[in-house]
């Protein structure tokens, strides 16, 4: 029996190791993790106060360049979201969300005249992109495109740690490195700096150039809950918010997972017991 279990464990183990090893594909740039996050691990959840602060950083700083097209204002009030409030049956009734939406002017068509108009936003409207189109975004950012932030935390290896590292990781360029105009040296950015490097060819600095000026600094955003607003705290909060934006169903997923796991363990246990009972009198070796 033990042998069978070992074989089974080996099969599952082998499959697991093989797949996770193969999945870890690309070589990563160095990452200065900001972990631990409140959402780490199988029981981790988002910290609502942190999401609210992170939203404020996004709103006041990042949103002037980065869009967040997949999110509607109502998502902010969804269960687990920054402004979720069990008092409201639905996120579109959430007063806070309504107030946030109303601050935006949304392009629309007047139903009577057909004229292009602007009207105050409602919770059902989507976040408003800072630029009309890609060309406009590039034109305002020295040719570089600020990526949409809806999925940024899942679209990069390292996720929130990567975002945190980029935002806090700006460094004066090492002597011998020529930084092109409008670019900044960042050791966490992907790239190959060898053609900009005058020093020892075996010691090319890690990292790359980024067209985004350092977006955050100590005290750039002041938080309503009086929590610290140094560079690191701001970066941590906005990274957590972006993780939520990219994976808003994480809490629901982990909660469902727990129930499913318990069920599967019991279910497999019962099946195993049935199997043993059934085969008791069969000599099957």
């Amino acid at each position: 029996m033990l042998r069978k279990l070992t074989v089974l464990a080996a099969a599952v183990g082998l499959a697991f190791v093989a797949t996770s090893a193969l999945a870890a594909s690309t070589k990563e740039e160095p990452v200065a993790p900001s972990a631990p996050w409140s959402f780490d691990g199988p029981f981790g959840t988002y910290d609502q106060a942190q999401l609210q602060r992170g939203y404020k950083v996004y709103r006041e700083v990042c949103s002037s360049c980065h869009s967040m097209n997949l999110l509607a204002f109502r998502n902010l009030g969804d269960k687990g979201g920054p402004f979720w409030d069990p008092k409201y049956k639905s996120s579109v009734e959430n007063g806070y969300v309504k107030a946030i939406a109303k601050d935006y002017q949304i392009a629309d068509i007047d139903r009577d005249t057909g004229d292009a108009i602007k009207r105050p936003g409602t919770p059902a409207d989507h976040f408003v992109a800072p630029f009309a189109n890609e060309a406009a975004a590039r034109a305002s950012n020295g040719g570089a495109l600020p990526p949409d932030m809806s999925l940024l935390a899942r679209a990069r290896e390292g996720g929130p740690d990567y975002i945190y590292s980029i935002v806090t990781g700006y460094h004066p360029a090492p002597a011998g490195l020529t930084v092109p105009a409008g670019k900044f040296y960042n050791p966490y950015m992907q790239g190959d700096l060898s053609s900009f490097w005058k020093g020892d060819p075996n010691k090319v600095p890690v990292g790359g150039f980024i067209a985004m000026p350092p977006p955050l600094a100590d005290g750039k955003v002041s938080f309503d809950d009086k929590s610290p607003s140094d560079l690191k705290a701001e970066a941590r909060d906005v990274s957590a918010f972006l993780m939520w934006a990219a994976d808003p169903k994480m809490e629901e997923r982990k909660q469902t997972g727990l129930a499913v796991m318990i069920f599967l363990l019991v279910f497999s246990g019962i099946l195993y017991a049935s199997y043993r009972t059934l085969w008791r009198n069969i000599d099957h070796h």
Binding site: L8, V12, A15, F16, G257, V260, M261, L264, L265, F267, S268, L271, Y272
Partner: peptide, 8 residues
């Protein structure tokens, strides 16, 4: 059942 645990 065991396979489903890994899957889950």
């Amino acid at each position: 059942g065991v396979f489903l645990i890994l899957f889950a």
